[in-house]
Amino acid sequence: MNRENSGYTIIYASVMVIIVALGLAFTHQVLIEKQTANVNIDKMQQILRSLNIDASADEARSQYDALVKNAYLINSDGTKIEGTEGTTPNDPAFSTELGSDDTAGLPVYEAEVEGTAIYILPMRGAGLWGPIWGYLAVEGDGSTVYGSEFGHASETPGLGAEIVTPTFRKQFIGKELFKEGNFVSVAVVKPGRSAANRDYVDGISGGTITSQGVDKMLLNSVGEYKSFLMNLQAAQ
C-alpha cells in the first residue's frame, strides 16, 4: 500500500482521530468522579480557610462536616429561601456557582466555631487576567470580619497571585464592614495609603489591578448580602 496516497492519508487520519477521541473520552469517564470529588474537597478547604483553619485534603470533609452546621440560599432582601437548606455538595448552597445569571439565590454557610455562629459569604470578581473569588467569614454581629480566603485563576505569579497568601488574608481579621450603620466594605489600598471612614488593608505592591479587583469584589459581592447582614445586626 502506498503511504503517500491521498486516500490512505485521509483514512489514516480519520482512524487515528477516532481512536484518540475514544481513548480520551474513556479516560475522562473513568476519572470524572474522582475529579469532581477533588473539586468539592478543594471548595471545602477554601471555606475552612476562611475560618482560619488549614485542613489537609484528607481532613477537609470531616472538619467541614463538624464546623459547618447549615447552608442555604437567601434572596435579595436577605431572607432564607425555604427548602434550600443542606451542606452537602449536592445541596443548592454548595452547588450554586456565583456569576451565572440564573441562580436561585445567594449561598450562605453557617458555621459554629467555639460556640459562636459565623456566617460565610462566597464572593466573585475580576482580577487582572481572569476571575478571582473568595469567601468572607463574618461574625454574628453582621459586621466584624472573622476570616477571609481568596483564590484566582491566572494572576501574575509573585504579584497579583499573592492575594492567596496568609499574610494578605490575615489582614482582614477584625475589620468592620459597616460604619455607623452603613455598609462601606473593607478597602484594599496601596501599601502606605489609607482610606477615609473605612477600615482598610494593604494591597499587594506590584499587583495593583488585582488588589483593586479584590476591593471591588468585596464591595460588590459582599454588598449583595447587605440586607442579610443588616438582618443579623437587627437580631443582635
Binding site: 481513548g23 479516560t27 474522582k34 475529579q35 485534603a57
Partner: peptide, 13 residues
C-alpha cells in the same frame, strides 16, 4: 490530556 486528567484526579493541588 491523559496525564492532565490523571493529575486532576490524583494530584489536584
Amino acid at each position: 490530556t491523559i496525564v492532565s486528567e490523571v493529575l486532576k484526579a490524583f494530584a489536584y493541588d
